[in-house]
Design a protein around this nucleic acid. Sequence first.
DNA 1: ATGTTAGGACGTAAATATACGTCGCATTGA
DNA 2: TCAATGCGACGTATATTTACGTCCTAACAT
Lengths: 111, 111
Amino acid sequence: MVVSKTDLFEEVLQERAYLFKALAHPARLQILQFLSQTKTCISCDISEELPLSRTTVKQHLKELKNVGLIKGTVEGVKTNYCLDYEKVDEMKKILNGFLQEIEFPKDFCCK
Amino acid sequence: MVVSKTDLFEEVLQERAYLFKALAHPARLQILQFLSQTKTCISCDISEELPLSRTTVKQHLKELKNVGLIKGTVEGVKTNYCLDYEKVDEMKKILNGFLQEIEFPKDFCCK
DNA sequence: ATGTTAGGACGTAAATATACGTCGCATTGA
DNA sequence: TCAATGCGACGTATATTTACGTCCTAACAT
């Protein structure tokens, strides 16, 4: 890449791209789905749900934590993961913002 | 990566991840935004709008074309790009599907 | 006290993405 | 006819992501 040029773009675009990147792997989507379905905190036996090794799953968890979509609270020997309500809400706003901007009229040109 | 494991996941997750991946770069988001704003077909002078070289922009255009979000129609010496209405609509459905699934109740556990 | 278990930190190999330059072909205008 | 212009195809260097293994430490149970 020689040098990343991502910071030459508008803030909004960067923010969205960053979010999309976090969502750009089925493992991470499944983790989010799982946490949302169980509606409880879950320790890292999530790895048993995914067709990936423990280490790899942990890496994906870390990435989700970095963007803030999930948080992990240490409870003795285990770490419980759950969705971060605030951030998930923010994500929805960002996605909806994107969806609205891409809106275009029915009588769109291109043939 | 040794070998990609993405196809070991549910189809829906794969489809979503694939879409998110396409949206995971500010350049591609700006292209979509631009095409949506101008509401016309645009030849490849899009590159003048972005802080990237012609070649790189073309690569991003190609990726967007691969997922089907835009289409390019050759018109003599130029290629006109525009949003693919159908696919954009499909994208919205996919994104909304994701947003709905990640829904969770106000009385969510985690402290 | 000691084994077990969960998770963090670190390292590594391979795949993929990003960014760019160059070359060649086809169409258009002079 | 011929130069110029636009774009596709190809190649390449570096960055990042993906996937995994190993080692170490802390807490819990026996």
